[in-house]
Write a protein that binds this DNA or RNA. Structure first.
Length: 283
DNA sequence: CGTCTTTGACCCGCGC
DNA sequence: GCGCGGGTCAAAGACG
């Protein structure tokens, strides 16, 4: 995943070559086995990680801070990434925006599960959007300065737009939404391993009927586990055993699930449409 | 009973 | 200075 000039995520297409996942209308390789798909995605992840490294290396020459984001956890909203706050100038580099598509069943909930616990402290109807904006504070640590605003998109009421402000100053284990301790330790390890806390910038979540697939495109998490509700696919698959478990899990999830394909196509399509303009002014 | 959410009021910055 | 809009506070209610 590439960062734009503001340190935010943007399309890697221009620099890293086309990721088939992002293709405008990826032909469903139905003859391809799940394992082959997995291998292909892992390969793409490696390419993207390399591209990101190159971009970050170039970006470090400028003194601005990289925006970070909370980890994309599994929830009822599929996190997609963003390129938003302070697009033209960066006086407030800690501001970043995450777009998430909510499940229709949660159409009334203005809540975005992102791996942290939040306490709502306000709600406001803004002028340019008929949907109310909700204000949240990090509820894990009283001293944590992080805030977020969540508002539905005026264009698409299923699209949640969350704006994060500040940096978490605590360990991430703040949520009960983690599937299990193993995945939690992964998250913590991931956070400790990354230079700037957490970020969904490198993660694609595709939610289908409560099931989520997360593709960690740049981070190097250790092998993890998955629950009966979710499968987490990270960029580096280390052991054959893990891959087997992963493939089995994916197979269970996707078997007889034509809606997943539709959701996937929809999510990819949305994402491509969001990212193409952002990529246009990166280089 | 403690915690969390809701919601109206208040504060503050900004543009005119 | 005034009005507007965004952001925050805090009391009250809901909930487990």
């Amino acid at each position: 995943m590439a960062m734009d000039s503001n340190g935010e995520c943007s399309s890697p297409i221009a620099s890293a070559g086309l990721l088939p996942l992002f293709g405008p209308s990826p032909p469903p390789p139905q003859a391809e086995s799940l394992e082959e798909k997995l291998r292909r995605v892992s390969e793409e992840n490696r390419r993207l990680a390399a591209a990101l490294d190159a971009i970050l290396a170039a970006d470090r020459s400028t003194p601005r801070a990289l925006a970070t984001s909370p980890p994309a956890q599994q929830g009822n909203a599929a996190l997609t990434t963003q390129a938003a706050a302070g697009v033209t100038a960066e006086p407030r580099p800690r501001l970043r925006t995450v777009r998430a598509r909510a499940e229709p069943a949660d159409a009334d909930a203005n809540h975005l599960k992102d791996g942290y616990q939040w306490r709502k402290y306000g709600q406001k109807v803004t002028r340019d959007n008929p949907y109310p904006r909700a204000y949240f504070r990090c509820a894990y640590a009283p001293s944590c300065p992080v805030k977020k605003k969540v508002q539905r998109s005026a264009d698409d009421n299923l699209m949640l737009v969350a704006t994060y402000e500040g940096e978490h100053n605590h360990e991430q284990r703040a949520q009960s939404e983690y599937v299990n301790d193993a995945s939690t330790s992964q998250q913590q390890q991931h956070q400790a391993g990354s230079s700037s806390s957490s970020l969904p910038c490198s993660i694609i979540s595709i939610n289908s009927l409560g099931r989520t697939i997360t593709l960690g495109l740049a981070d190097q998490r250790p092998p993890g586990s998955s629950s009966n509700a979710e499968a987490v696919v990270v960029g580096e698959i280390v052991t054959p055993e893990f891959r087997k478990v992963l493939v089995d899990e994916l197979a269970n999830l996707l078997k007889n699930d034509s809606e997943f394909i539709e959701s996937l196509a929809s999510a990819v399509s949305d994402r491509v449409m969001e990212r193409i303009p952002a990529a246009g002014h990166i280089f």
